[in-house]
Amino acid sequence: MNTSVLLLAAAMVTAHPSSAFAQASGSAPESAAATAAAPPAAQDDDPDRDVNLAQPDFSVITLPTTLRVARHKSAFRITHRFGRPLGAGDFGDLAGDLFGLDNGAVIGLEYRFGLFRGAQVGVHRTSNKAVQFFGQYDIKNQRDGFPVGIAAYVSAEGTNNFRDSYSPGLGLLVSREIGDRAALYLEPFWVNNTNELPNELVDDNNTVIVGVGARLRVRPSVYALLEAAPRLSGYDPGVGHISFGVEKRAGGHAFQLNFSNGFATTLAEVARGGFNHDDWYIGFNISRKFY
């Protein structure tokens, strides 16, 4: 099994040499010199480098979007889910804990890279030692005239630094951009081995979910977000994942404040759902494109 996992990981990280660089800010003479020695103009004409106002980032909150990573470019994201339910105690208690800052958190670090146009790979690692490798391939894109965006999504996740309890997943991402104001998502996923007990002890070991999401640009650079992932079949502990939030974009950065009924930041965690509908947890995502 470890050999197969390594083969999958090798397939997903096979790439040309990285040329990631931060968004330029000033220093015109250096830019001119760099431009003079730059590769042919075709690279700079990559439309995937342009900001997509309806779909500016690679995740809604946890669910993926169909936004393409520009070829040979990369992006980084940090996720944070505070461990204190907002409803525990009164407001004074909550404020005294700085809305959960004092109570520990599940943190995730994520990096993704554009292999070639329409194809991206990445890795997400949580402070619970879950590691998720993922890949996404653009099948149809609304910017190319198709009515919706469609992408294939594959992931392989393992707990304990990818040493235990593997959960591969397959999904189809369907998006619909509404002008430059909004984007809607419908994303069925099948996730294997979501039940952490052995097969012999459980009735269901896989989960089928359908992710639904929406992103609405309420101000020029402010978005409202909502996502949910009800379970259609299989292992379904707790309740379906639900999360909502608000996001502010500034340059190449995005800061998102969100509220979720669990700590899910990987696909298998989303499939396992939230704890209940009474406990909600504050969190944030910070993302940065390196282009």
């Binding site: 099994m1 197969s4 309890s165 593997y166 294997n192 081995n193 052995p198 002890l201």
Partner: peptide
């Protein structure tokens, strides 16, 4: 990977 994913009893 999926075929060998399950936890061992």
């Amino acid at each position: 990977t999926g075929s060998g994913c399950d936890e061992q009893l």
